[in-house]
């Protein structure tokens, strides 16, 4: 008993109030660079400002509201709130209830989806920024609220999502190029 109290005491002393981030939080790992490939596309023969305009148009197509922008740095951020109910979770909750579980299972209720889209010029071999070739990189994250009001957050890494997004952006870039 005494030993346990002492151990708890030492544990608390060591932990204090602070928790520190895991090592390599700020180091570039091969997985991160692979993620970069997935999230980036190159667009040629279009000026940065036109590419940004085409991008903001796509974000509107997808129902996002613009949050912030700094066109001088090629940055757009946008967000939207959406329903987060999932059929799988509802089924699981139903099965649990049928099995006689007293406590209702917390299910995803709604979510805030955030997106940051960054355009940057491709650098040539001398490190000079190109006027007409740019890289677009888009990143999505979402915060989901459950029925018990708890939340969880995640960065979206689904390959399909990015492929679909860039298909839409390519269409928009085409339309922008032809001023349709």
């Amino acid at each position: 008993m005494k030993k346990m109290v002492a151990a708890t005491c030492v544990g608390l002393l060591l932990a204090g109030c602070a928790v520190q981030p895991p090592p390599n939080t700020f180091a570039l790992t091969p997985e991160l660079l692979q993620q970069r490939q997935l999230e980036t596309r190159r667009y040629d023969d279009i000026k940065e400002v036109d590419l940004l305009s085409a991008s903001s148009n796509v974000l509107q197509d997808l129902g996002y509201n613009l949050e912030n922008s700094e066109t001088k740095l090629g940055v757009l951020t946008a967000s939207k709130q959406r329903d987060a109910t999932s059929a799988g979770e509802v089924t699981a909750a139903l099965v649990l209830a049928l099995l006689g579980s007293r406590r209702p299972m917390a299910m995803s209720k709604d979510q805030t989806i955030r997106v940051a889209l960054v355009v940057r010029p491709v650098n040539d071999s001398n490190g000079k920024a190109s006027e007409s070739s740019h890289l677009v990189r888009v990143t999505f994250q979402r915060v989901v609220r459950r029925t018990d009001n708890s939340t969880y957050a995640e960065t979206l890494k689904d390959e399909e999502l990015y492929r679909d997004f860039y298909e839409r952006l390519s269409k928009s870039v085409f339309l922008e190029g032809h001023k349709l």
Binding site: T25, L32, E39, K72, L73, V75, T77, V118, R120, T139
Partner: peptide
């Protein structure tokens, strides 16, 4: 300054961050 900022944004994205705001 612009080059350093653009590289910073790019590094943050590489590290899995989503940009909240930027100001040149």
């Amino acid at each position: 300054k612009e080059k350093v900022l653009r590289a910073t944004i790019s590094t943050l994205q590489d590290l899995g961050f989503v940009v909240d705001r930027a100001d040149l």
